[in-house]
């Protein structure tokens, strides 16, 4: 029964990993940018959520109403002000600039909040659980987190394939030059893609901050989890990314069950196995 329980927990946390991955995947899909600071932006939004919910005395989920617009605008400005200038045939500039950004965010958070771990308090929902027959019990919070993650991936899928904005994203991704000839401003489109990515990042950050404690140095491992989910699922496939996140979550929980020290390692090993046998991921769609 314990095993089934860990697998269920793994599936549920996989939804969160898929959210880490979805923002990464979206901007890679649109502009072939891999944002090394992605994990740090997740932690940044967790800290923003913490500050806003404690200072305004709001529930962490309500603080999203404030944090989402801040992060979305920040993403748009960051893209137009800095990242657009780095995009081109050479992969080095965007990589190194986002790496620099990662260092800046981590150390700024350290300067403001110190290295002490923080946590957001969401009240009774954190401990409430749903009892299932057979002695299984599922926490309401992980369940809600999973359902909302799936919903968000569905919404992203809808935006990408069913709306004018998504059409513009796909057209720009196909051929930037021709997209510009059709009146699409590349810089604006990329800015919007980054803003949407930041919306997802913020939701992921708040979920994370309620689920576990976090500190300024926690970003890189979130980037890595997101990256692993993307590669396991296959580039350019959002539903694949969800499966990738679930595989990662389940592997980590099974690893932890065997030996608590193996939790993260087991996730990496699952990733390496996929990379060795299915280098393009399980549900590959586009080439990197």
């Amino acid at each position: 029964m314990d095993w089934i329980n860990s697998i269920i927990q793994g599936i549920l946390v996989g939804g969160l990993y898929a959210l880490f991955a979805a923002g990464l995947s979206l901007i890679f899909g649109v502009m072939r940018l891999v944002n090394i600071a992605h994990g740090d932006l997740i932690i940044l939004s967790a800290f923003l959520g913490l500050t806003i919910s404690t200072s305004l005395n709001l529930h962490p989920f309500i603080s999203l109403i404030v944090v989402i617009p801040i992060m979305a605008i920040f993403g748009y400005v960051l893209q137009r002000g800095i990242l657009n200038k780095t995009l081109g045939n050479d992969i080095l500039p965007p990589l190194l600039v986002t790496f620099g950004l990662s260092i800046i965010i981590q150390n700024s958070l350290l300067e403001i909040y110190t290295a002490d771990p923080q946590k957001m308090n969401a009240g009774v929902i954190e401990v409430a659980s749903l009892s299932l027959p057979g002695g299984l019990s599922i926490g309401w919070y992980p369940l809600i987190m999973f359902v909302i993650s799936v919903l968000i991936i569905g919404i992203l899928q809808f935006i990408f394939y069913k709306t004018a904005l998504g059409r513009a994203f796909r057209a720009t991704s196909d051929d930037q030059e021709i997209a510009q000839l059709m009146g699409l401003s590349k810089n604006h489109i990329f800015g919007l893609a980054m803003a949407i990515s930041m919306v997802v990042v913020t939701i992921a950050g708040i979920f994370l901050g309620v689920r576990t404690s976090f500190d300024p140095a926690a970003g890189p491992s979130r980037l890595i989890f997101g990256f692993e989910a993307v590669i396991i699922g296959g580039l350019g496939n959002l539903w694949g990314t969800l499966i990738g996140g679930i595989i990662l979550g389940v592997s980590q929980n099974i690893g932890a069950k065997i030996n608590p020290g193996w939790q993260i390692l087991a996730g990496h090993i699952a990733f390496i196995i996929v990379l060795a046998f299915r280098p393009k991921g399980l549900f590959h769609r586009i080439d990197g």
Binding site: A171, S173, E177, Q180, G183
Partner: peptide, 28 residues
Amino acid sequence: LRADEIAKKGLAMVPEGRKLFPSLSVEE
């Protein structure tokens, strides 16, 4: 001016090699 600004003024191009967006349907 950028290409998108010029396009909005009413200059349209049918590019060499057609250059349709491959991941979009014809109607898209």
